[in-house]
Structure formats: structure tokens, C-alpha cells
């Protein structure tokens, strides 16, 4: 097991955001994390990435508690929710991908850009790209440090269908060919069913974690998910 989350609870001002979540991720897993808005998906990701440390329970990456060492971050590539890129930010795609890299290896940057089919646009400015193209650049950015795990937080929200399909194809290849484990949160149940081999269904508590096919073929479970989503939707409005 490369990720082990045990009894994870988070609350903001006394209101529970996550309650006693426990699950593990194996090497090579393509895990889709689904749940309605406000279910705690982003909170879970923030905890896993060390951005939010005020939680109960333990999170282990590669058998090490993340509170004790940040070394695990060097093995993680993170693609955030559709990032707001300042159109005027003066950086080319190549510069964005190599940002923060200690070693300046242009070949690795080119290789990462080739994997997401963006190498021909490498000298364009990031602000001139569509949001779908920008997200592919952020995958390249995540790949340049040769991660073992890719973490993607609702990466294709607002991205057009063509770029969404390209994005999913890239993820699928990274998982099957490069053997990169993927943790991906999404609202798109069809895409999760198509791509992920494991599913974690979240709504403050974890009410399903297991094989994707089992979840999607279980009518009771799907019904429960729909009801929960609807309840959360009503709650938000």
C-alpha cells in the first residue's frame, strides 16, 4: 500500500468536514474520488498534500506519517482544480513546466510536454492557452519530477469536451504505460466509471471504497449516491 489513510477527521469551526475516513491506495491504482459539492473532497486532498495539517487521524505515504516528513511530496505530482492563470503572467509553457525545478534539464521538460502533446506549443505564453490546454501543461509540470503518484483535484471542471477527452486519454496512458498511480476527484461519474479501477465515494464520511465496477453495478449504491448528492445540492441552495 502506498497511501494509508486512517480515521481521518477534519472540522472547521466545530463543523465536521470529514469524519473518520479510512482507506488505502495500492501501487498502480487509478482511484476516482467522487462525491457532491461540499462532500470534503478538496479537504481530503489538502490534508494529503500537507496544505491542511489540523486533522485527527493519520495519513501515511510510502509507510511514513506525512506529519513527520515532507519527503513524500517529491514523489507526488499535483494538478489543482482549474487554476486561475493571470493572462498577463509573463511565462512560456516551457518556463512554467521548469518552474521550481532544481535541476535544469530541458530534455525532461520536453519529454513531459510530449507526453501531454504540448511540446509544439512550448514557447507560447501560458496565459494565451485555453483552460484545457493549461491543464495539460500542469500535468506536464507534475510529470517533470517523475512522480509515483499523480493527484488531480477536479481537474477538468469547465474544460471543453475535446480537451476533456484528450486529458482523460493522457491520464489513462500515464496509469497503464508509465505505471503512475492516480488519485483523481471528479463529478463526472461516466468518466470515473470509464477510467478508474477503484472508487472512493465521499460525503463527509466514506460510504464506499472498492472496485469501480462493483460501485457502478450496485443499484442500491448508485441510488444512495444520487440521494446524497441531491441532499447536498438542496443544502447548498
Amino acid at each position: 500500500m502506498i497511501v494509508d489513510i486512517s480515521e481521518l477527521s477534519v472540522s472547521y469551526d466545530g463543523i465536521g468536514a470529514l469524519e473518520k475516513i479510512s482507506f488505502g491506495i495500492n501501487k498502480g491504482d487509478f482511484l476516482g474520488i467522487i462525491g457532491p459539492n461540499g462532500a470534503g473532497k478538496s479537504t481530503l486532498f489538502h490534508c494529503m498534500l500537507g496544505l491542511h495539517l489540523e486533522y485527527q487521524g493519520t495519513i501515511k505515504f510510502f509507510n511514513k506519517d506525512i506529519r513527520k516528513s515532507e519527503e513524500y511530496l517529491t514523489h507526488i505530482g499535483y494538478v489543482p482544480q482549474k487554476p486561475v492563470v493571470d493572462r498577463n503572467f509573463p511565462a512560456t509553457i516551457r518556463e512554467v513546466v521548469s518552474m521550481g525545478q532544481a535541476n535544469n534539464d530541458p530534455d525532461m521538460v520536453d519529454e513531459a510536454l510530449q507526453k501531454v502533446w504540448m511540446h509544439e506549443l512550448a514557447d507560447r505564453r501560458i496565459g494565451d492557452l485555453s483552460s484545457g490546454q493549461q491543464q495539460r501543461v500542469f500535468i506536464a509540470k507534475a510529470l517533470v519530477s517523475s512522480p509515483k503518484i499523480l493527484v488531480l483535484d477536479e481537474p477538468v471542471t469547465g474544460v471543453d469536451i475535446h480537451n476533456k477527452d484528450l486529458f482523460f486519454q493522457i491520464l489513462s496512458e500515464l496509469n497503464s504505460k508509465e505505471k503512475i498511480s492516480i488519485i483523481w476527484s471528479s463529478h463526472d461519474l461516466d468518466a470515473v466509471e470509464r477510467l478508474a479501477n477503484k472508487v472512493a465515494c465521499l460525503n463527509k464520511t466514506l460510504f464506499f471504497h472498492g472496485i469501480s465496477q462493483e460501485f457502478f453495478s450496485d443499484e442500491e449504491m448508485m441510488k444512495k449516491y444520487s440521494e446524497t448528492s441531491m441532499q447536498m445540492h438542496m443544502h447548498h441552495h
Binding site: L49, G50, L51, E70, L73, T74, I76, Y78, P80, P83, F89, A91, E95, V96, M99, G100, F138, K141, S145
Partner: peptide, 15 residues
Amino acid sequence: MYITFSEEQARVSGI
């Protein structure tokens, strides 16, 4: 440059 571009991503990359 990375921190200026995105503090969150820079933090996650271990900076």
C-alpha cells in the same frame, strides 16, 4: 517564480 505563479502548487512541490 513558482511561488509568484502559484503558492499552493509551489508548497505541494516541497518548496
